[in-house]
Design a protein around this nucleic acid. Structure first.
Lengths: 220, 220
DNA sequence: CTCAAAATACCGCATTTGGAGTATTGCCTT
DNA sequence: AAGGCAATACTCCAAATGCGGTATTTTGAG
C-alpha cells in the first residue's frame, strides 16, 4: 500500500457528478442535493441527451445520473454513446420505472447502476458513493431480474443431458468448430470413433448437422 | 386481490429456514439467530450437502442458507440438485469469499442470493426477508460482477460488424443450422450465390467452418 | 460371473462443404 | 462517365460430413 494523493492531508476529492434529466424541477433538485452534500459536487446538468453528448466529454465527471425517458434520443442510447467515448465513466440510471426491458437495455448499453427516482436522498448519495467505488447499486428486486437473465443465459445446458461423458466431451469440441480429425487428435482416438460418437449425439439431440448440435450446446 | 390464508388474523407465517453449514459454531449461531428473531423459524440444520439433499425435501423450507465450502459435495453442487427437486426453493449462498467463479457458479446453479458471512445479523435477516420476497440480495460489489458478466454476454455482437446486410442475413440462417440449399430456398437465390456469400463471410470473420462462424454469431 | 451400456473402430457411399477462380448486373459516389 | 462495392451466378476439385451397417473391447451394476 502506498499513500494516495488525496489521502495525504486533503479531506477527499469530491465525486464529480453530471445530471441528464429533462424535467427542470427534478434536475435542479438533484443538483442542489448533490452540491449541498459533502463529498459531492455537481459539475453539469443537461436537459437532453444531445447536449450531454456534446458538452460532457469536455469536462468528464466521475458519475452521471441519467434519466431514461428524454426528448429525442433516449437515455439508453445516450449511455451507449457516452460509454464509447468515455469508457471510465460510471453511469447510474435514475428512472420512474422498473421495467425489465429498460433495465436490461440500460445495462447492456453500459450503465452499471440502476435506481428508481423514488429512492430517498440519503440512499441515493450512498449509492453514488458506492457506484464510484466499483459497486453496482440497484434494488434487490432489480438484482433479481438481472440474476434471472444471467441464469437463463448461462444455464439451459440441460439439452445436452442424456449424453454420455464422452459424447459431451466430443460435442464440446465439435461446438468450438473443430473438425472430426482435430477432435480425434485431441482425444487420442480414431476419426472413425469420433464419427460414431457424433452420429450418436445427433440421434440423441435430434439434429442432423454439426451446427445444429453446436446450437444446442450453446443453447438459448 | 383476495385474502390470503395467513393474513386473515394470524400475525404472519414465519419464514421457514434451513441451514447447510459444516462449522458447528456458525451453524448453531445462525440457527439461534434465526429462531430468536420474530418472523423467522429454523426448521433444519445440516452439516453437509449429502444430508441436506436426503432430508431437506421431506420438509421443504422457504429459504436455505448454504455454505459453499463443505466436506465432500460442495454447496454449489448441492444447490444444483436441490433446485432440480424443489424449484420453488430460494437459496442464499453464505460464504467467506467474494470470488468471481464462486459467485457465477452459485448463480448458475440456481442460487438467488449471495452474501458474505461477515454480514451483520440485522442485515442478514433483512436480506432473507428480501430474498423470500422475490429480491436477490447481494452486495453492490457482487452485483457489479454479475452486471459485468451480463454485459459481456449480451454485448459482443460486434464481431459480426463489417458484414454486409445480406451476409449478416445469410450468417443468421447458417448459424441456425440450415444447409446452403435451404438458405438459398429461403432467400430465393441460387445455392452458388449462398456459397459465395458464405466464403466471403469466412474471410471477414477469419474462420474456416460454418460452426466457427455460428460461434462468432452467437458470440460470448 | 453375466449382461448391458459405453467406447472404440472400420467399411462404404452419397451429399455437403470449403476453397479457388471468373463473370455479370445494378447501384452509389465521385 | 468511371470506378467501386454488393449481390448475383457459375465451374472445378478435394476434403469433410452424414448415414447405414457391423464388430471388438472395457467397464460397471446386479
Amino acid at each position: 500500500m502506498y499513500l494516495e494523493k488525496q489521502s495525504t492531508y486533503t479531506v477527499q476529492m469530491p465525486i464529480k457528478i453530471a445530471i441528464v434529466e429533462d424535467n427542470e424541477e427534478i434536475r435542479e433538485g438533484l443538483c442542489v442535493l448533490v452540491d449541498g452534500s459533502p463529498g459531492f459536487t455537481c459539475t453539469a446538468a443537461y436537459p437532453d441527451a444531445e447536449q450531454a453528448l456534446q458538452y460532457l466529454p469536455d469536462d468528464p465527471p466521475d458519475v452521471v445520473l441519467m434519466d431514461i425517458r428524454l426528448p429525442q434520443m433516449s437515455g439508453i442510447e445516450c449511455v451507449q454513446h457516452l460509454r464509447e467515448r468515455l469508457p471510465e465513466l460510471q453511469i447510474m440510471m435514475l428512472t420512474m420505472f422498473e421495467d425489465d426491458e429498460l433495465v436490461f437495455n440500460s445495462l447492456k448499453a453500459g450503465a452499471t447502476g440502476y435506481l428508481l427516482k423514488k429512492t430517498p436522498p440519503a440512499e441515493l448519495l450512498d449509492a453514488i458513493r458506492n457506484l464510484h467505488n466499483g459497486g453496482s447499486p440497484m434494488s434487490s428486486q432489480i438484482a433479481r431480474k438481472v440474476v434471472q437473465a444471467f441464469q437463463q443465459i448461462s444455464q439451459s445446458h440441460k439439452d445436452t443431458e442424456g449424453l454420455t461423458e464422452r459424447e459431451a466431451e466430443i460435442l464440446a469440441h465439435l461446438a468450438r468448430g473443430y473438425h472430426d480429425k482435430e477432435i480425434a487428435g485431441e482425444l487420442f482416438v480414431s476419426v472413425e470413433t469420433v464419427r460414431t460418437h457424433i452420429r450418436n449425439i445427433y440421434k440423441k439431440l435430434h439434429v442432423h448437422t454439426r451446427t445444429e448440435a453446436a446450437r444446442k450446446f450453446y443453447r438459448r
